[in-house]
Nucleic acid binder design. Structure first.
Lengths: 102, 102
DNA sequence: GTTTACAATGTCATTCCTGACATATAATGG
DNA sequence: CCATTATATGTCAGGAATGACATTGTAAAC
């Protein structure tokens, strides 16, 4: 199966039944995906705390509404790089970043 | 000044005098750079602990010797994504990753 | 000095991520 | 109902990161 597709599927089954071993994801792969999801959730949390819309946040970090939505959704096309940069731009400290991913 | 150049310069002055405010790096920018450097150092540490050459490590993570060198050197062309993936491939846990960046 | 092994640095074609845009799908209130 | 506002999802041209390769630097050993 294609790798991107697999990831996307993994994300769905996540919410439903939290099944990861169902698909043959290696330990690294799932750790990586988990990190992206955790960072995405943190981004949403921070955005909502500031009562910003995705479009407003997008403007602040010089991105687009769709990309913010994808970041928060843990979309496979989003890099950890972008998530980290966005969170840092929102004033999140390295320490909190660390707490988020561990 | 060009952003990439600036980063490269920042890296040098790092080793010499640890001056960051000298160049007008924002808090996010320097936090991001610090993270990349920290992850790069951790990669080297892990590699040496296993007594691997850069070339050997490169093969293990399906990359190249030059890219490993750049990762360890904190080169601006290296993404945090690649560093994280490489460390995970080396068996580093999310918890240790977190400890590394904070 | 030269040979050997490893690491650093530069360049480049290919691959992957990005912002932008279009459009769809809620959710809310009139 | 239907606007309006927010979010989700798909697509794509352009730019950034990647592995590969070549070359250079460095240090040890002989």
């Amino acid at each position: 199966m294609d790798k991107r597709k697999k990831e996307k599927l993994a994300k769905k089954s996540w919410k439903v039944g939290s099944v990861v071993e169902f698909l043959d994801l290696s330990a690294e792969e799932s750790a990586y995906i988990e990190m992206r999801l955790a960072l995405g959730e943190k981004l949403r949390e921070r955005r909502l705390r500031r009562k910003l819309t995705q479009a407003e946040l997008a403007k602040a970090i010089e991105s687009s509404q769709s990309r913010v939505a994808k970041m928060e959704a843990g979309d496979p096309t989003v890099s950890i790089d972008l998530l980290v940069k966005s969170l840092l731009a929102l004033g999140v400290s390295k320490k909190e970043l660390a707490r988020t991913i561990s």
